[in-house]
Simulated scan of single mutants.
Amino acid sequence: MAGRRDLDRFLDEYYRLTGKEPRRSDKDLFEVVEEVFDAATLKALLELVRRRVIFELKGVVSAGKEARVYWGKDFEKRDLAVKIYLTTSAEFRRGLIKYLEADPRFAGRVPKSTRKLYSTWARKEFSNYMRMFKVGVSVPRPIAVHENILVMEFIGENGKPAPLLREVDPDVETLAEIFRAVMEDVRKSVLRARLVHGDLSEYNIMVWEGKHYIIDVSQAVTLDHPNALDYLYRDIVNVVRFFSKQGVETPRPEEIFKEIVSNLR
């Protein structure tokens, strides 16, 4: 937890870098979420301000056990989604270790330090987003990562995030189009980015202005992960199950899985 002196030093430097006039609301934001803004996180946030990635944070738009997502602005006043991993969650820490130890990209290199562990996890999510984004998968555009902070494109407007797939109620024709687009992104992710999401469902697909966005890709694994194909099949089953329940005619999960795997090189 950041002490008052840490917070005051942070705000002094923050106002110097941004040229903003001191506001009580800024101090309130950082004091209220003291479990997120410990001294090290304040330092990391300040570095992103110094790099002119973040101009300001406006407030929390999503809060989970492992992270908070904030609506922010960059120096051009464009919207940002700023995801800050909580370095105090012991339960989440155990889960991270399990995922990282099984990921060939981190074999034998899982940090023992809690802070470095969360920093590694944030970098993993950024890397996964970047690999997907580069091959045309519809994900929020990744912008920057530093320590336990991940910055990306904000999907939504005026600080209100886009609804999740499970929260929208379009007609069956529109749903069928979304289903086809999501499955095409699963193919791209596997065949071009060589990644499997590993937890894909209606809970981590956003829908905004007629387009879907796949989110929460931190647990995505490369194809050389021992469970990659099992995770792929599970993702396909989850997506097919949801759309089938909404009245969309879909191929059987095993057909989709077989088609994708047959194209692996």
Rank of each mutant, 00 (worst) to 15 (best):
R131W: 06
F126A: 10
K116V: 03
R187I: 01
L175Q: 06
T174V: 13
D38L: 05
F75Y: 13
L29H: 07
D171W: 01
L96M: 15
G95S: 12
Y118W: 12
H212I: 12
T88Y: 07
N128F: 09
S62G: 14
Y203V: 09
R5E: 15
R166E: 12
P253K: 08
D224N: 14
E35C: 02
H146I: 00
K77F: 12
A81M: 03
S218M: 10
L7V: 08
L164R: 15
K134A: 14
A90Q: 09
V186N: 02
M206I: 02
I215E: 02
I256E: 06
Y15L: 05
R105M: 11
V69M: 03
T87R: 11
Q219N: 12
D235S: 10
M130L: 15
K245V: 13
L165M: 12
T250Y: 02
V237C: 12
P22V: 06
G198N: 09
W121R: 01
D12W: 03
Q246H: 14
W121M: 01
R5Q: 13
A122K: 00
A2K: 07
R23K: 15
Y99L: 14
N128E: 05
G136C: 09
P163H: 01
Y203E: 09
A2W: 00
K188E: 05
L80K: 01
T41L: 02
R241Q: 10
A44S: 15
V53L: 00
N148G: 04
R5S: 15
L46H: 00
Y203T: 12
R123M: 13
V110T: 13
A176Y: 01
G64E: 02
I54N: 00
E167D: 15
A102W: 03
L195T: 11
G64K: 03
R115C: 01
P161H: 08
L46D: 00
R94Y: 11
N227P: 00
K77T: 08
E184N: 14
A40M: 05
T174C: 06
L17A: 01
V248P: 06
R166W: 08
D74V: 04
D74C: 04
N227Y: 10
E157H: 12
R105F: 08
E101M: 09
K258Y: 10
L11W: 04
K73Y: 07
R234Y: 09
R123G: 12
D74F: 03
D230W: 05
R68E: 08
R123H: 13
P111I: 12
V182F: 00
K116S: 14
E184T: 14
